[in-house]
Design a protein around this nucleic acid. Sequence first.
DNA 1: CAAGCGTAGTTGAGCGTTGAACTATTCCGC
DNA 2: GCGGAATAGTTCAACGCTCAACTACGCTTG
Lengths: 155, 155
Amino acid sequence: MGEPRWLDAEEQKAWRAWLYSAQLLLDRLDRDLTHRTGISHAYYEILVALSEAPERMMRMSELADRCLSSRSRLSHAVSRLEERGWVRRQVYAEDGRGQLAVLTEEGFAALEGAAPIHVEGVRRELFDQLTPEQVEGMRALGETLLRHLDPDRVP
Amino acid sequence: MGEPRWLDAEEQKAWRAWLYSAQLLLDRLDRDLTHRTGISHAYYEILVALSEAPERMMRMSELADRCLSSRSRLSHAVSRLEERGWVRRQVYAEDGRGQLAVLTEEGFAALEGAAPIHVEGVRRELFDQLTPEQVEGMRALGETLLRHLDPDRVP
DNA sequence: CAAGCGTAGTTGAGCGTTGAACTATTCCGC
DNA sequence: GCGGAATAGTTCAACGCTCAACTACGCTTG
């Protein structure tokens, strides 16, 4: 094992600043969206992914990957979105095991209603606080980490 | 309301990179710690906070603030940590409404066991991927966001 | 074409979080 | 020092997530 490589004071500060800011930002955006639209950030991501897909439909497992979700979690989530009438399931003709999640018109309308609230939150809590240089730094940092955490997701 | 200030392509990229990297990193650290020590990141933060407090004890609400937790959430979490014998509750003499959460010796030992695993994860997934300049940029960005999200938490 | 393996997705139980309602105590103004 | 507001913390029910077990289908190899 060897002696743990403890963080020095500078690293501690950087880690704490990143951790707290990430948790607070994610939490605030989620709460804001949820309270003002009834749609959690997780559900919003599902609706966005479907709305951008050809014919507004996607395989369950593709959708799960895209939304950083386990299959089980996505399956539960889609069931709940189905109850709201925003998504419906449809068997995938080319592969009898597969299911397609399809965004309904009602689901698309719900997304259209939530999108301005969401983007306003991201502006207010994030971009309005940063200079263009900081935004560029944020993108570079994010992509560096992404290259390690999940290379396939890097643009 | 006015027209929403939609994100342009650069902003989209920056936002997605930040969002995915933050979610993946938090998720991976939490899973890694949980599977290797049986202690979730949330519980770990509680143990750390207590271990750093005078006499290893803190008021419930202070502890909740420190851990970015609601009072309800913390109350549940402390109950579960109590069941493990890692924390105990004690009435706060100076204020009959208050409760103190106290870290037990067993709790401290559990923390000592988990700390090397945790720091190794943070190194491997975060610091080892970054240059010193990027670490400094990460700290500055985090503190900028923190100044907006929760000014009292900025160093 | 059958056996076995891999893949897609669902289900159910258990745990953790949320938000609101609740109890108990202290603080404040009169 | 009394009545009402504020604060500290807990509890409950509803919801969401996790992990493991399960069903169903497809693919491969003999």
